[in-house]
């Protein structure tokens, strides 16, 4: 599904990612763990098309060169980024945003757009599953939401858009243990043979709830070790500093 070969990324002539390689197959869950400044967020930004990076190498998504696609086209093809810091957007109603987003993606894929009633039915169901306060959906996007609510809102969007590849950028940070569990349940309910996940995190805590197939350790812009879920535990015991 996703093949990254020799990815190099610079920002303001500072090297962030270097010789980065990763392959994710349909249905797999990969976790990338790394200390602050190791390039985790850069990776998620680049995959979703944020401007401002100088990139080289190759990133293929379903055999298409990702660098040739605009941010919204990547979303249309099924890439979703759950933001580390979801943005507050004053004046934009959450429900309207969600509907606009879903219909933009459906339209791009030649599917019928949902009308207001169909959409509300869908969003109600998804919100309920995530224990997300429905009333909040009538508010401005993320404005006045708590940290946990913002993160849940990301997962709600993910479950509504049903992407092929979901990138979770430190979704666990700022979540209390109950919210963490709800978020994990939301992710787990989306695990299917065609849906893949890339989970970016500092801690293995989230991985107690979402069992990854692979764990990669990212340091100084490249993956220094890959393994199964046990690698996360090893990392937790040793710490990043002593890992090398």
């Amino acid at each position: 599904m996703l093949k990254i070969k020799n990815l190099k990324a610079d920002i303001d002539s500072k090297s962030i990612l270097n010789n980065f390689n990763l392959e994710i197959k349909p249905g797999e869950v990969h976790a990338i763990m790394g200390p602050n400044g190791s390039g985790k967020s850069t990776l998620s930004n680049i995959l979703s098309g944020k401007k401002g990076y100088k990139v080289s190498g190759e990133v293929l998504f379903e055999n298409k060169n990702l660098f040739e696609l605009e941010t919204e086209e990547r979303a249309h093809k099924g890439i979703f980024l759950a933001f580390q810091y979801p943005l507050e957007i004053p004046g934009v109603n959450t429900n309207i945003f969600l509907k606009t987003s879903l219909n933009a993606i459906r339209k791009a894929n030649g599917e019928k757009e949902l009308d207001a009633i169909e959409f509300l039915k869908l969003v109600k169901l998804k919100a309920k599953n995530l224990k997300f306060d429905e009333e909040k959906l009538n508010r401005q996007l993320n404005v006045g939401f708590s940290g946990g609510e913002k993160k849940k809102n990301e997962i709600l969007q993910m479950s509504i858009l049903n992407p092929k590849l979901s990138i979770l950028d430190e979704t666990d940070s700022g979540l209390d243990i109950d919210a963490l569990k709800t978020v994990a349940d939301g992710v787990n309910s989306l695990r299917k043979k065609d849906n893949s996940f890339l989970i970016i995190t500092h801690y293995q805590r989230l991985l107690d709830y979402i069992k990854p197939d692979y764990v990669h350790v990212l340091m100084n812009g490249k993956i220094i070790k890959s393994g199964g879920p046990e690698l996360a535990l090893e990392l937790e015991n040793k710490g990043y500093e002593n890992f090398n």
Binding site: G49, T71, E72, A75, L87, I89, V92, F97, T100
Partner: peptide
């Protein structure tokens, strides 16, 4: 960028933000 990552093109994202602003 946030809005575009959800499938809206630049024009739509801009329109939605301006709409919200006004």
């Amino acid at each position: 960028f946030y809005l575009m990552s959800r499938g809206l093109n630049y024009k739509e994202a801009k329109k939605l933000l301006i709409n919200g602003f006004l």
